[in-house]
Design a binder for these strands. Structure first.
Lengths: 209, 209
DNA sequence: GTCTATATTCGGATAGAC
DNA sequence: GTCTATCCGAATATAGAC
């Protein structure tokens, strides 16, 4: 409330700070893509944003804190991309589209995929605030799966495994291609067929091992 | 049985060297499990095997070379575990067992899984000799899948994605548990059901990598 | 093969002036 | 917020004696 016509200097400063922070994050991603996530050097990062290395500490408290900011930003991007999916009439189509998008997202930015879904940075643990963004994504995805007919925990677990697996194989064995991405549709139909075959009970009798 | 009664000193020395090298690898794994793969310190590794840090260079040429040795050893262990699987009469059962074993292997040693299946060490590329061991595993697994009825490239790709996904989810979201491991059986049946629904063109033997 | 000694470079982080 | 200066520790790797 109450933003003056001429923006108070405080807000301008805050905005400049945000812009600079965004630039820092941008260059951090660039370095991560070049050398690997774990190999980001604060010295080189500072160089790229025209700062001296100690000045970075005005923007984050430690290197792990930087990773946390990258983690949160990456999840925000992905949540936005999920929300931007065209709404499909058929829930099955929507499910297919989500799986396809997941593989695409992993494929188009491998280090992002590593930071979010593989725990590779020694000592890094996402903050609660960052995890909250992650949970947004899972809720959104769960809705889509539920609408497509998945009901049990086992259904969900199979579906998430399939999504993770397609993405992983795409990234690991056909980077830049679509060999696993194009399996999104048939794989979803596989899952849905099994749901329809034995609704609410995708596992055999005695399903707890 | 042709070893001389008095073993030649050359062979004894060679064996001692191998034993020491094995000890080095053992402790390297221990450090990786404690601190993460990327955080292995040659100083601490040397301490643990009663050497000074520079002496390690009598056993490998660089740190990346150490990772390569770990990579090769890990694949050898896994190949052995695959070969040690009890033979099942039903190829479908054999397939189930393989998927279950894959998830178990990832679950029981997460850093091994990371080194083999996630490219997380900056600059590390397995040597040709190490990759040869990896291919052994893929050939072995391909045979099992083929016998279970998978014929097309798409079948294989789906199956490998499912295996990778179950393992990943198990490791990432239920470490120490069996929430995804117990989905091995129903998931294999899912795959096989789709194969029976629309059988594809057979692939040539050994042509899947 | 193992040692001591050292080179070299780099890392993240802090103190304190402006 | 940004700087200079610096700390302190860590890292991998090499040289050369024994």
């Amino acid at each position: 409330m109450s933003a003056a016509a001429t923006e108070p200097p405080v807000d301008r400063r805050a905005r400049r700070r945000e812009e600079k922070f965004a630039r820092i994050l941008h260059e951090a991603w660039a370095l991560a893509r070049r050398d690997g996530l774990a190999a980001i050097s604060l010295r080189e990062l500072a160089d790229r944003v025209d700062l001296r290395q100690p000045s970075l500490y005005a923007y984050f408290e430690s290197k792990l804190d930087l990773y946390d900011a990258m983690f949160a930003q990456a999840y925000r991007v992905i949540v936005d991309r999920f929300r931007a999916m065209p709404a499909a009439d058929d829930p099955r189509d929507q499910f297919v589209e989500m799986v396809r998008l997941s593989v695409q997202l992993a494929s188009e930015d491998i280090v992002r995929h590593q930071l979010l879904f593989q725990r590779t940075i020694p000592g890094f643990e996402p903050s609660d605030a960052s995890m909250a963004i992650a949970y947004e994504l899972y809720d959104f995805g769960s809705d889509i799966m539920r609408r497509a007919g998945l009901t049990t925990q086992a259904h969900f677990d199979m579906a998430t495994a399939v999504m993770a697996g397609l993405a992983h194989q795409q990234v690991a064995n056909d980077p830049g291609g679509d060999r696993w991405e194009r399996l999104a549709e048939p794989t979803v139909d596989l899952l849905l067929a099994s749901v329809r075959a034995k609704p609410g009970r995708p596992t055999k009798k005695g399903s707890t091992r």
